[in-house]
Simulated assay, not measured.
Amino acid sequence: MTGKTQLGAFLQARRAQVRPEDVGMPTYGERRRVPGLRREELALLAGVSASYYTRLEQGQSLSASAEVLEAIAGALRLDESERRHLHDLARADRRRPRSRRPAPERVTEAAGQLLDALTGVPAIVLGRRSDVLAWNRMGHALFAGHLDFTAPARPAERPNMARLVFLDCHTRELYADWASKARAVVGNLRLVAGEYPDDAGLHALVGELSAKSAEFAGMWADHRVKACAVAPYEMRHPLVGSLTVLQQTLSSGPGPAVVVATTEPDSPARAALTLLGQAVDHDTVPASPSNRPV
C-alpha cells in the first residue's frame, strides 16, 4: 500500500465516480466504454495536459504542485477531507516511505482527564488505527459491553473498532444502518492511510479486513474518504433498546481522539442512556491504574 500506487488508484477511482453530466461535459449521446470521465476530459477541466494527467494517474510523475493538485481536486469535486487526502498521497509519493511500525499509542494526559470527566456520557479513546486505548464505563456498556472492560489496558488484546464493525456480530447488530457506519469507518481509515503511509500496523489491519470481509474489500476499493467528526446513528442496544446518538470525535491535533455519544435532552434516547447508566452503576468495578491504559 504505497503512496505512489494509492495516488494513482485514488485518482482513477474518483474520476470514475464523476459523470460527464455532473460537470456539464457534453457526450452527444455516444456510447462510453469507461464509467465517469475520461482522462482527457478531466485534464481539460483541470487545465492540464492530457499526457501530464495520464502520467500522474499512472504514477509516472512525482512533481505535481499544490496548484495542480487543487485544480484536479476541483475538477473531481472533492470536499475538504478528500482534498487533504489527495495532498497527503502526493507527499507520500514524493518521499517514497518505507513501511515501519510506529511507537505504541498511549492515552494522553488530556484525553485521560476528559474521559474521567465524562462519567455520565459514553466515551472512548481511539488511536489512529481505531484501536480502543481506553473507555469509560458508559462507553464500554454502549459500544462493546460484551467485551472485557479491562481489555484496552493490555495492548495485545485491545479491541479495534474497525475490526468490530466488520467482524463482530454484536457490533453489526448494534447499528440499525450498519452500512452507513461501515462506510464511515472505511472512509476514516482511508484518510489515516494517506496521512501515515508508512504505518505497518495499519497495512496489516487493512490486509486482515480485506481478507476476512468482502464488504470491507469492496468499500476499500472504492477509495472514498470521510472524516468521522460528527454523525448521528440509530443504535439497537441489547439492554435498553433503540436510541439515536450523536457520535462526536474530539481531537486537538496529533494523538488519540476521544469519541463521545450524546443524546437530545428529554428524548427517549436520553432516557435509554439513563437506564444504561443505572445498569452500569449496579455492576461497576472501580477504575484504577490496573485497568486504565497508560
Rank of each mutant, 00 (worst) to 15 (best):
L11H: 00
L11V: 01
Q12G: 10
A16R: 06
Q17A: 08
V18H: 07
V18P: 02
V18E: 01
P20Q: 11
E21T: 01
D22F: 05
M25V: 15
E30Q: 13
V34P: 02
R38C: 09
R38W: 14
R39A: 09
R39W: 11
E40C: 10
L44D: 11
V48G: 05
Y53C: 09
L56G: 05
Q60L: 15
L62V: 12
S65F: 02
E70S: 12
A73H: 06
L76E: 08
D79C: 09
D79N: 12
E80Q: 11
R83Q: 09
R84F: 06
R84M: 04
H85C: 10
L86V: 01
L89C: 01
L89D: 00
R91I: 01
D93P: 02
R95A: 03
P104G: 08
E105P: 07
V107Q: 05
A110P: 13
Q113I: 14
L114Y: 03
L114C: 12
L115S: 08
D116Q: 09
D116T: 03
A117W: 00
T119W: 08
T119L: 09
V121R: 02
A123W: 10
V125P: 11
V125W: 12
G127D: 07
R128W: 14
R128F: 06
R129F: 14
S130F: 15
L133D: 08
H140Y: 03
F143G: 00
A144L: 04
G145W: 00
G145P: 00
T150H: 10
A153T: 01
A156Q: 03
E157V: 03
R163L: 09
L164K: 02
F166V: 03
L167V: 06
D168V: 04
D168T: 02
T171S: 05
R172N: 05
Y175C: 06
A182F: 01
A184V: 15
V185S: 08
V186E: 01
G187L: 08
L189V: 06
L189E: 05
R190H: 10
L191Y: 04
V192C: 06
V192R: 00
E195F: 04
A200E: 15
L202Y: 02
L202H: 06
V206A: 04
G207A: 02
E208W: 04
S210K: 09
S210N: 07
A214G: 12
A217Y: 11
R224N: 10
K226A: 13
K226I: 12
K226M: 14
A227Y: 13
A229H: 13
V230L: 13
P232H: 11
Y233P: 05
E234I: 05
M235Y: 02
H237S: 01
P238A: 00
G241M: 03
S242A: 14
L246C: 11
L246D: 09
S252N: 13
S252H: 13
G255V: 11
P256K: 04
P256F: 10
A257V: 15
A261G: 11
P265D: 12
S267C: 14
S267V: 10
A269Q: 05
A272K: 03
A272T: 10
Q278I: 14
V280A: 07
R292S: 15
R292Q: 15
